[in-house]
Simulated scan of single mutants.
Amino acid sequence: MEKQKKAVVVTGFGPFGEHSVNASWVAVQEFERLGLGNGVDLHVYEVPVEYQAVQRLIPGLWKKHRPQLTVHVGVSGMASTVTLEKCGHNVGYKGLDNCQFCPDTQCCVEGGPECLDSIIDMDVVCKRVTAAGLDVLFTVSTDAGRYLCDFTYYTSLHQSRGKSVFIHVPPLGKPYTGEQLGKAVKAIIEVILDMLEQAEDQINCDHKH
């Protein structure tokens, strides 16, 4: 019996502010070129830096693809490493988006919990990708910045019941190339898919006994 392909959705962001070329979208395109092999149904999207677009798009992607994993990549001008975000935050959104809009409530999901954590253990992911010996530094963070990145992450975690991750990349050339970032994204996703598969095998194993 052939194993059903697992759907993975990966998003990067479009241009905003001084980021006329968004390193996250460059990284995602480089990653898409490398791919994840035949066992994975990969779907890649560029997300506009707009709150209302995110609120429409993220639930739509979930309904359309029912992904095993959703991975969002964003750029951070303050980052100098590839940063694995552990959680998304619900409130504190005051920064205006590309449409000069910001939610009146300054929150993602009214009545939602203040923080939502990914079900993926980012500390383990960080250790494993660091051990893979890429020429990129990885770190872990609990603050995705209260702008579109954080907003997208929380929206996605809420939609996927925690089966989402967010990766922050530095701007291009500070210090990494698009190619290096693409390889880093690929390595992270492969580690996570492996972790999810091991967890699934464990559950199936427990059910058999």
Rank of each mutant, 00 (worst) to 15 (best):
V165P: 00
Q159M: 15
V165A: 02
T155F: 06
R146G: 07
I120L: 09
Y153V: 08
S141H: 05
I120K: 13
A144M: 05
L172T: 05
Y153P: 00
V140C: 00
V140S: 01
D121A: 14
K174F: 14
G173N: 10
Q159G: 12
L137R: 11
I167A: 06
L172N: 02
V136D: 05
A132E: 12
I167R: 03
V169N: 01
Q159V: 15
F166G: 04
H158M: 13
D143Y: 06
S164T: 14
S141P: 01
F166M: 11
K127A: 10
I119F: 15
Y153N: 08
A132G: 01
F138Y: 03
P170L: 07
V140L: 03
H168Q: 06
D135A: 13
D123G: 13
Y153M: 15
A132V: 01
K163S: 11
A132T: 06
V125S: 02
K127F: 12
V140N: 00
A132M: 08
F138E: 01
F138L: 03
I167G: 04
V129P: 03
S160E: 00
K174D: 00
F166P: 07
Q159D: 09
G162M: 11
K174H: 08
G162Q: 12
G162S: 06
L137P: 00
S160P: 00
G133H: 12
R128G: 04
D150S: 13
Q159P: 02
T155S: 11
T139D: 03
G145F: 02
G145P: 00
G162F: 15
Y153R: 15
S160Q: 12
P171N: 09
K174W: 04
I119Y: 15
G133P: 13
Y154G: 01
C149V: 13
V165G: 03
S156E: 12
R146Q: 14
V124E: 13
F166I: 04
A132Y: 06
G162R: 15
R128A: 12
S156N: 14
M122A: 00
Y147W: 13
Y147N: 04
L148A: 02
C126G: 02
P171G: 07
T130R: 10
